[in-house]
């Protein structure tokens, strides 16, 4: 096992601020895939998201010394950079953010052995998710899919802890209510 892989994100970013390229490579390896996948949920294009994430990592390299505990965890800092860059990209493209992925050309991790839910349920989930306001979708995705804590989600979205907690609560409640309604109608 690589020695650097044992270091915490904070230790890594401290080394990156001292121009340690190996530490930077470790940080890239740790978060690259999840950041690209997160961004692709919005851009619907791997190549666009790859560019966004590459630029985000270069920004991290240049400004690593500017990171401090007050900016939240390194993980939330990275997600915040990528999220903001993605939203900027979408604004320029004037495209709606966060479309359900399986409706488009991007292959999803829904191979038979990985598929835990029925196709119908997945479709229902995408539909329900797309009906949520953008902030609620993002908060839910970061919390449920990317494993960020409520505090980290709050950092990414520039919200207070209470506001984020209530945002997540509203999102979950809406999904649950929709499922209840749709199951009565036999949709899901």
């Amino acid at each position: 096992m690589n020695e650097l892989s044992l270091l915490s994100d904070k230790q890594l970013i401290e080394q990156v601020s001292n121009n340690e390229q190996a530490a930077f490579a470790e940080l890239v390896q740790r978060y690259l895939a999840s950041l690209v996948k997160f961004s692709t949920r919005y851009t619907l294009s791997f190549s666009c998201s790859e560019d966004i994430v590459q630029e985000a990592f270069l920004r991290v390299w240049r400004h690593a010394s500017g990171w401090s505990d007050s900016k939240g965890s390194v993980k939330s800092w990275l997600y915040k950079i990528v999220y903001n860059a993605t939203i900027d990209f979408l604004r320029k493209k004037k495209r709606d953010a966060f479309m359900p992925t399986h409706e488009h050309d991007i292959a999803c991790e829904n191979s038979p052995d990985k598929m835990l839910l029925g196709r119908q349920q997945q479709r229902w989930f995408h539909q329900a998710l797309s009906e949520l306001p953008e902030r609620q979708r993002t908060a839910l995705c970061l919390f449920m899919n990317n494993g960020l804590s409520v505090a980290e989600v709050a950092t990414v979205l520039d919200l207070s802890l209470e506001a984020t907690s209530s945002l997540l609560a509203r999102a979950k409640r809406k999904l649950r209510n929709k499922r209840q309604q749709d199951s009565q109608l036999g949709v899901c």
Binding site: L32, L58, I106, N110, M115, L117, Q122, F125
Partner: peptide, 28 residues
């Protein structure tokens, strides 16, 4: 919900990941 998120996660190839990782570190 988590399972729904996981199953809908875009499938990004390992080769693409490796290639981008090398591109970023070499540009630095």
């Amino acid at each position: 919900f988590k399972e729904c998120f996981i199953s809908s996660e875009p499938l990004w190839s390992l080769a693409a990941e490796k290639s981008l990782s090398e591109k970023i570190t070499s540009s630095v």
